[in-house]
Design a protein around this nucleic acid. Structure first.
Lengths: 207, 207
DNA sequence: TACAAATTCGACCGATGGTCGAAATGTAGG
DNA sequence: CCTACATTTCGACCATCGGTCGAATTTGTA
């Protein structure tokens, strides 16, 4: 990794440190040391410590977000498949980013803040695409529901919250139960054929 | 207010300070000064600054939480009415606690953290009661759905997220649209008579 | 080579969360 | 009332942090 621009080295350093520490326990000097640069240089690229986190989040979402947006236009694929792809992308990226060990220590409290930002960004960016896809499903007569935007938001909110075990602490079974409930509610509430949303209940995805 | 125990004076001080400042901008010394005690004494009652916030949140939720829990046992009241009461209590208490001016300054970032904690606590504590109520509704044949716990959680998550304008930034109309969508989804997905959940769409409640 | 712009750096600053031990206060019993 | 002990109070103090700054170095360029 010799030629990476400093900017990205800083992001990498934070990402790495975040894997076993709370943001509050990571000092700017730590980041600088890990990135192999002076502390002052950090502030040449970022206005504040928080800005580094923001940039990291944005960088991590760049790819799934682009996928999602391009998906909205691919009308030849079935709406369900496209929804599945968006949600899996979201799930994968959040898994990769938030893979902290999270023993039941006190740090869970603070890392919640990180998750929250993550989630906020994700929902805001993904909602338009998902809404559009749902709208197309409605137009095609495959989904029966008159609030496409609301439906997109509900799905995203519940998924985003439940996909983070740190947001609400819950067992895996409990989380799955909620997702199953959401699927059942969706199927019955929107006239979608039973089983069409099953991909949501799958625990994980291959790459 | 001469006889308040120090513990509560500290909580009061933080609550007061929180009305026009970010948590990060409030120093422990500030809290001590506002409470009229020495800084060292703070750490006699609380192990850390964050612990003060936790205690404050818990104290603020004490009342609505008790209401909710006692409601679960009142089987003579209709499940819908009880659900309405729980959700209104939740809505009111969050309004009261989070009534910051929230000009679009940078503090929004940090106050999000507070909201998140609030929400986390609320959902975790309210879910059992709401689940029980829904379960009773199912037993009574008024609700048709086989995942009572999941349903409770979905409703609480969406409401908690959407009731905070700071969590996801959204216009009031947008929020209402989502709630309306949730209601429609609920009604269709659970066989509840149309209109039975209308109280959810009401913008505010009297006291 | 000369010179300016961009970049790097760590000493430095003010302020913070938290510690500590000495003082103050309470509370017994003799 | 005094002594002995535990509880409570306090602010000076400490380590550390996020962020600034200007001097030093590198890079671009003509």
């Amino acid at each position: 990794m010799p030629d990476l621009k400093k900017y990205d080295r800083i992001l990498d350093a934070l990402h790495q440190l975040l894997e076993d520490q709370t943001l509050q326990n990571i000092s700017v000097s730590d980041i600088a040391k890990k990135a192999g640069i002076g502390k002052g240089s950090i502030y040449y690229y970022f206005p504040s410590k928080e800005a580094i986190l923001d940039a990291l989040i944005e960088r991590n979402y760049e790819k799934p977000l682009k996928t999602a947006k391009s998906l909205a236009g691919q009308t030849e694929i079935s709406p369900f498949t496209r929804m599945a792809m968006i949600l899996q992308a979201c799930r994968n990226s959040s898994d990769a980013f938030l893979s902290q060990d999270n023993t039941v220590t006190a740090n869970a409290q603070e890392s919640a803040f990180l998750h929250q930002k993550y989630m906020n960004h994700l929902i805001a960016e993904l909602k338009p695409s998902l809404t559009e896809i749902i709208r197309q499903g409605i137009a095609a007569g495959e989904i029966h529901f008159e609030y496409p935007a609301a439906l997109a938001e509900i799905v995203l909110i519940v998924l985003a919250v439940k996909l983070n075990n740190t947001f609400l602490s819950a067992t895996a079974e409990d989380s799955e139960d909620t997702i199953r409930g959401l699927v059942a509610l969706l199927e019955r509430g929107t006239g979608v054929p039973e089983g069409a949303l099953n991909y949501l209940t799958l625990p994980a995805a291959d790459s």
